[in-house]
Every structure is written in C-alpha cells, then in structure tokens.
Amino acid sequence: MTIYRATVSRVRPLTDTMVRITFAGDDVPAFVSTGVDDEYVRLFFPHGADRRELSLPVSSGSGWETPEGRPTAPVRTFTVRAARPEAAEIDIDFVLHDDGIAGPWAAAARPGDPLGLNAPTGLYDPPADLARQFLVCDLTGLPALARILENTPQGVVTRAVVEVPDERSVQPLPAHPRAKVTWTYGGNGHGPSRLAELVTAAVPPHAELAGTYIWVAGETTALRSVRKHLRKTLALPTERFKVVGYWAPGGESWSARYKALPADVKAELAALWDDPQGDLEDVTITYEEQLTRLGL
C-alpha cells in the first residue's frame, strides 16, 4: 500500500459546519481514482503541534508500518469529493468540530500544510438494472451523496434524505432531473440520530423494490438497525444495498473500551471474520449484535 504525500493548495468554506480542502503535489498524479462515487482514502495527519512536521508510514505488504524511531501519524478515513489526477488535485470535504484530530486540523488548514493519503477504495455499487435509488445519510455522507448525484444516469429516479444538525449545514447539491432531496435536522452528535427512522420511512416493509438500490451512510451505531431492516425485514440481497458507517460518537473512548475487553471476548469477535459462514452482511449483523450486547 503506497502512502502519497500531498499539500493543501486551497481552502473553501462550504457552510458553517463543512469546509472543502483541495490537496495537490508531485505525488497526486499517481493517485488513481476508482471512479466509484463514494470512494474513500485514509488520511495521515501530523503527529504533534507542528502542522508542517509529518511522519509518514511506509508500505508493508497490503498495509503500512511506521519506521522505527519515528512518531506514528494519526489516521482517519475520509470520502473523496472530487479527484482530478490530470490536474494533480483532489478535494476532500471536512466536517468542522472541536473533537478528535481531523476537525480541528481542517478548521486551521492553510495552503502548504502537508498530509499523507493512500489510494482510494469505492463502495457504491448499484446493480445493472438500476431504475431507482434511495440515498440516506447524515452530514458526514454529504460529499459522497453529492458525487453520486453528479454521476447518476439521467433516467434514474433518486430519493435522497439528509440529516444535518440545523439549517446552517444545508448546502447546494448537484441538480438531477429526477432527484428529490429532503433535509431534516438533528443527529450528528447534537442529538439522537434518526437515520434508522428515515430509512424505514423511505423504504417500508412490503415496498416494491424491483430495480432499486439503497445507499445509507453516517453514524455507525445508528446504522446497525438499518442493516437489519434492509437485510432481514426487507430480505434484500446484498447487491441491492450498501450501509457504510462513517463515524461513532466518542470514537476515541469506544476504541479504548473495545481494547479493554477480555482477550477471550475479543478473540470470539475476531473469529467471526476468520472463516465467515454465509453472506458477509449476515456476519456483520451478528458482529454488531454482539457489540451491542457488550455495550459498544
């Protein structure tokens, strides 16, 4: 896995809660876009107070490792809003918030700030007979949703529902002749997420779903019941939907609580993925049910 080095070339506020940062650099032309609308990359941030001091890991097979004696770069995952390899640029939209690594970094970003990133991976994968799609997300899913709308074929009917903190977070989205976008306020760390409720309302039991694809992205824990609704209640085949967890409330404390689990419990959870029996979405549901029982 190659880690590329890029630098901030432009910073553009989009709303009170989101900023678009354009990255450029000699390595960026080597960045190969998958062409998939919700492709994501891992971003490697400066490890300390000096924004210009970047300790990038090196490739290690399919992963990466930090050279001995070097500090470890914090890593976060983000959606690529736009990729322009021919111009040696990519755009990434950041949600602004005070917690963690990425939000405060983005709020203070200036041209010349360095960052590391790897090659992208895409998830949005509608079937060949796509005639209609439901897109539901919170604020973190907006960059992917916008890119999906940009590239949706003209004849596809699209129903999009977006949960943002408040009206200050609403932003213009690409126009599509057969798309309807509904904005709703709440969730996003400012209150309980309504993503599960929104998906159930948009795609109720016994809905006619021939030629339909469903894409849902946002708060990870809120999407557990969404995945069960789509897979178990609606009995959808996995090629008809994609559920993508982008973030978790108190992500740092969640990781600490997971690491504190007894070794045998962590081994049991890991064993679900060692030799998965059945469809991976079903395995994911089992895994998430166990996490819920553990209070995670």
Rank of each mutant, 00 (worst) to 15 (best):
Thr7Arg: 15
Pro13Met: 03
Thr15Pro: 09
Thr15Leu: 12
Thr15Asn: 10
Asp16Ala: 13
Thr17Gly: 15
Met18Asn: 08
Val19Met: 02
Val19Gln: 01
Ile21Asn: 00
Thr22Glu: 14
Thr22Leu: 05
Phe23Asp: 05
Gly25Gln: 00
Val28His: 00
Val28Gln: 00
Pro29Val: 03
Pro29Lys: 05
Val32Asp: 12
Val32Glu: 12
Thr34Arg: 06
Asp38Gln: 02
Val41Met: 04
Val41Gly: 10
Phe44Tyr: 05
Ser55Asn: 10
Leu56Asn: 12
Pro57Leu: 09
Pro57Cys: 04
Ser59Asn: 15
Glu65Thr: 12
Pro67Cys: 06
Arg70Met: 15
Arg70Lys: 15
Thr77Phe: 08
Val80Leu: 13
Val80His: 06
Ala83Leu: 07
Pro85Phe: 06
Ala87Cys: 11
Ala88Asp: 03
Glu89Pro: 07
Ile90Asp: 00
Ile90Gly: 02
Asp91Asn: 03
Ile92Lys: 10
Leu96Met: 05
His97Trp: 03
His97Ile: 04
Gly100Asn: 06
Gly103Met: 01
Gly103Arg: 05
Trp105Met: 10
Pro111Ala: 10
Gly112Tyr: 01
Asp113Phe: 12
Asp113Arg: 09
Leu115Phe: 06
Leu115Met: 15
Leu115Asn: 07
Ala119Pro: 13
Pro120Ser: 07
Gly122His: 11
Leu123Glu: 07
Leu123Phe: 12
Tyr124Asp: 07
Asp125Trp: 09
Pro127Gly: 03
Leu135Glu: 01
Val136Arg: 01
Asp138Gly: 02
Leu139Glu: 09
Leu139Ile: 12
Thr140Ala: 14
Leu142His: 12
Pro143Tyr: 00
Pro143Met: 01
Ala144Trp: 01
Glu150Met: 05
Gln154Val: 14
Val156Ser: 00
Val156Ala: 02
Val157Met: 14
Arg159Thr: 09
Arg159Gln: 08
Ala160Asn: 09
Ala160Ile: 09
Val162Leu: 07
Pro165Glu: 04
Glu167Asn: 14
Gln171Glu: 13
Ala175Thr: 13
Arg178Gln: 07
Val181Gln: 05
Val181Ser: 08
Thr182Lys: 09
Thr182Asn: 12
Tyr185Gly: 15
Gly187Pro: 12
Asn188Tyr: 00
Gly189Arg: 08
Ser193Asp: 04
Arg194Val: 11
Ala196Gly: 15
Leu198Asp: 06
Leu198Ala: 11
Val199Arg: 07
Ala201Val: 02
Ala202Gln: 09
Pro204Gln: 05
Gly211Met: 00
Gly211Cys: 03
Gly211Lys: 04
Thr212Leu: 06
Tyr213Gln: 07
Tyr213Leu: 11
Val216Arg: 05
Thr221Ala: 15
Ala222Lys: 11
Leu223Arg: 06
Lys228Gln: 15
Leu230Cys: 01
Arg231Asp: 05
Leu234His: 01
Ala235Ile: 13
Glu239Cys: 08
Arg240Ser: 04
Lys242Val: 09
Gly251Tyr: 08
Glu252Gln: 11
Glu252Val: 14
Ser255Tyr: 14
Lys259His: 12
Ala260Asn: 11
Ala260Gly: 04
Ala260Glu: 05
Asp264Asn: 15
Lys266Tyr: 03
Glu268Asp: 14
Leu269Asn: 04
Ala270His: 08
Ala270Asp: 11
Ala271Leu: 04
Asp274Ala: 14
Gln277Tyr: 04
Gln277Val: 14
Gln277Leu: 08
Gly278Gln: 01
Asp279Ser: 03
Leu280Arg: 07
Val283Lys: 10
Val283His: 05
Glu288Asp: 11
Glu289Ser: 14
Gln290Pro: 08
Thr292Asn: 06
Thr292Cys: 05
Leu294Arg: 09
